[in-house]
Amino acid sequence: MKNRIPHIGLVLFVLIGILPFALAFIYALLYSFGVVGVVNTGFTFKFWLAVLQSGEFFKSLIYSALIAFVSMAASVGGALWITIQFRQNLEKKFLSFIAYLPLAIPGVVTGFFIFQLLSKSGFFARISYAFGWIREATDFPDLVNDTFALGINLAFITMVLPFFVLLFLNVFKNERLDELSILAQSLGANPRQVVQRIQLPILLKKARILIVLYFIFLLGSYEVPLILGQESPQMLSVLIIREIKQYDLDKISEGYVAAVLYTIIVSATVLFLFLPKRKNALI
């Protein structure tokens, strides 16, 4: 009976976790090759060729990757700095509550708040007008729907940074970093060396899988770039949904091509990053 339990778990995992995704992927693949779809007439490469030749997908992919990278770098870097500098203060109940609070706010709400604050008719624009710093709304700098994705990055950082602060605080406790730091000092390390050789490597090593997963999460994020992003290039999910919901029915298949391509690239990246290490896993 005991031996059956792991099998039941595996079957449930396949049924709930893998099967729906696999079926959706196969459907998208068939759609992208014109095998299924209202106006599609049979197997064709034309949608794939159209997507690959237009270059919009790859422009969007690079744009999304850059935004995700900048947001992750700022969030992880900021969380490391806050954790190392203010660890003892953050362990106080009220401050840890403040750190949890942003995690409870959905992405769409965060995006809306950032828009309310930074748009040309938003809170800061109005304050700037009231103080006489700008003469009209158009004088206020483009902080949302802008080329440099400042609004998107700010929203992402607001969402991700508190999570990593809490994660690093837990790693600090669980890995006994305070004791390891004292030991390193006792072996001759100065405070800078303790941070560089002990605290940073251990925190980053323990968080590396979550850093990659969060990067992928941001790469495929939808609501925030929909509210705060620019028209072109758009982040990937926004581009894919736009294509799939086109009035031009031919474009729907191109949307599925983009979705399949994105899935393949992300899956290949995840396998490349995690598979060799799993083989050598120590725990």
Partner: peptide, 20 residues
């Protein structure tokens, strides 16, 4: 003198090896 300048090593009851 700072701990790192004393050339005195303090060992805990647990081995506390650097896990990385």
């Amino acid at each position: 003198k700072k701990p790192s300048e004393r050339n005195i090593v303090y060992l805990y009851q647990e081995d506390l090896l650097f896990p990385h």
